[in-house]
Amino acid sequence: MSETLKVIVDRPDATVAVLRTDGYINNTGGEEIAKEAYALLGSGVNRLLLDLEKTKIVNSIGISILIEILEKLLDQGGKLAFCRLTPTIEKTFQIMGLAQYARIFAAPEPALAWLRGESE
């Protein structure tokens, strides 16, 4: 059995990046996301959208790595948004309080508008 996470990075413009995940966000999946996120941060991109449309399950170890990414983004004046979460993943993020520091959107477009500062 393998639930290896795939991450596809998209740069719609110079200010934001979209990380599209496909698979299980556990410790190794979280580390894959972190590797891409930190490379983007290193190149000056501090507004990230995590599109979880193809992720149906996460665990708390994977989410703790997402909290590390959030911490680094906030330290650099950045923003983190999530979109296309399953109801259970969204509920879990609410339980953990992640939604107090990162925004959750149903679709990518409003998330990107928020990251670009085009909407509240």
Partner: peptide
């Protein structure tokens, strides 16, 4: 979450 963001312990 607020404490987790300020500390090395996030689990």
């Amino acid at each position: 979450i607020a404490a987790a963001l300020r500390s090395s312990r996030k689990r």
